Simulated assay, not measured.
Amino acid sequence: MIESIRQEVEQWLKDVVIGLNLCPFAARPHRLNLIDIIVSTATDEQQLLLQLDDEMRRLLAAPVDELETTIIAVPNMLQQFDRYNDFLDLADALLEQQGFAGQLQIASFHPQYQFVDTEPDDTSNLTNCSPYPLLHLIREQSLTDALMNYADPDKIPERNIAKLERLSWEQLRHYFPYIFK
């Protein structure tokens, strides 16, 4: 079960994030095998916070040329987006409390992702939809370095939305089978 979830997240990363180029910074670390995908077995917030703390420490302790980023899949909890969103507040508080702010940030992905001031079926939400609730730990320095070498990074969200709006129904079902059944 854990391996199949890890493979599903890996496939999403390859097909959607990299394949559709939603994150222009993901291909390089993926190609160099610098992305770790962890499947959490946590069933409550305390367990997940402990695991998140462990993974933040492990990421910061590893040389960036061995491990650049970590994705934690959370299949056993936080299935409702509002609960997931509430947990993100706890995760960010942990990041601050441990003194990791400025070194790491947490990017969020969820099967029911919904940006503020959007409707649930708004295409823009698909940019952050994933097969499971995910906590993506990103090194701040890696992000800063990537942004310095990318023209118009502020246009990435609108470009991604336009790209997703051009997809046919069949393509949407292919890329997001966990949403479009």
Score class of each variant (00 low, 15 high):
residue 135 L to A: 07
residue 168 S to P: 04
residue 142 S to Q: 07
residue 121 D to W: 10
residue 125 N to I: 04
residue 126 L to H: 06
residue 115 F to R: 01
residue 45 E to R: 06
residue 62 A to Y: 07
residue 138 I to S: 07
residue 36 D to G: 15
residue 95 L to T: 04
residue 85 N to V: 02
residue 177 P to Y: 00
residue 108 S to N: 06
residue 52 L to S: 01
residue 64 V to H: 14
residue 124 S to C: 11
residue 67 L to E: 06
residue 80 Q to K: 14
residue 98 Q to N: 11
residue 150 Y to Q: 10
residue 11 Q to S: 14
residue 166 R to S: 13
residue 71 I to R: 01
residue 162 A to M: 08
residue 101 A to H: 14
residue 48 L to K: 01
residue 95 L to C: 05
residue 135 L to S: 07
residue 66 E to Y: 12
residue 22 L to H: 05
residue 108 S to F: 08
residue 11 Q to E: 12
residue 175 Y to V: 00
residue 85 N to Q: 12
residue 56 M to L: 04
residue 131 P to S: 03
residue 32 L to R: 15
residue 124 S to M: 10
residue 130 S to N: 05
residue 34 L to M: 07
residue 8 E to S: 13
residue 152 D to M: 13
residue 142 S to P: 05
residue 39 V to H: 06
residue 109 F to P: 01
residue 63 P to C: 10
residue 57 R to F: 14
residue 177 P to G: 00
residue 114 Q to D: 03
residue 57 R to K: 15
residue 2 I to T: 14
residue 83 R to K: 12
residue 134 L to A: 06
residue 102 G to R: 03
residue 74 V to W: 01
residue 64 V to I: 13
residue 77 M to Q: 02
residue 24 P to M: 12
residue 70 T to V: 12
residue 83 R to A: 07
residue 83 R to H: 12
residue 70 T to C: 08
residue 148 M to C: 13
residue 97 Q to Y: 10
residue 34 L to Y: 10
residue 16 V to K: 02
residue 88 L to D: 02
residue 107 A to H: 07
residue 106 I to P: 06
residue 74 V to G: 00
residue 120 P to S: 03
residue 39 V to F: 08
residue 49 L to Y: 01
residue 93 A to C: 04
residue 26 A to G: 13
residue 90 L to F: 09
residue 55 E to V: 05
residue 135 L to K: 07
residue 10 E to D: 14
residue 150 Y to P: 11
residue 39 V to Q: 05
residue 174 H to C: 02
residue 140 E to H: 15
residue 124 S to E: 11
residue 103 Q to N: 11
residue 179 I to P: 00
residue 174 H to N: 02
residue 175 Y to F: 04
residue 156 I to Y: 04
residue 145 D to W: 11
residue 43 T to I: 15
residue 145 D to V: 10
residue 161 I to W: 03
residue 99 G to S: 08
residue 123 T to V: 14
residue 9 V to P: 03
residue 168 S to Q: 00
residue 125 N to K: 09
residue 124 S to K: 10
residue 3 E to Y: 13
residue 84 Y to D: 00
residue 91 A to V: 02
residue 5 I to F: 08
residue 87 F to L: 03
residue 15 D to T: 12
residue 55 E to M: 10
residue 135 L to N: 05
residue 62 A to H: 11
residue 104 L to I: 03
residue 72 I to W: 01
residue 146 A to K: 04
residue 62 A to C: 09
residue 43 T to P: 15
residue 71 I to K: 01
residue 173 R to C: 03
residue 122 D to K: 04
residue 93 A to I: 05
residue 173 R to W: 00
residue 67 L to K: 09
residue 17 V to H: 04
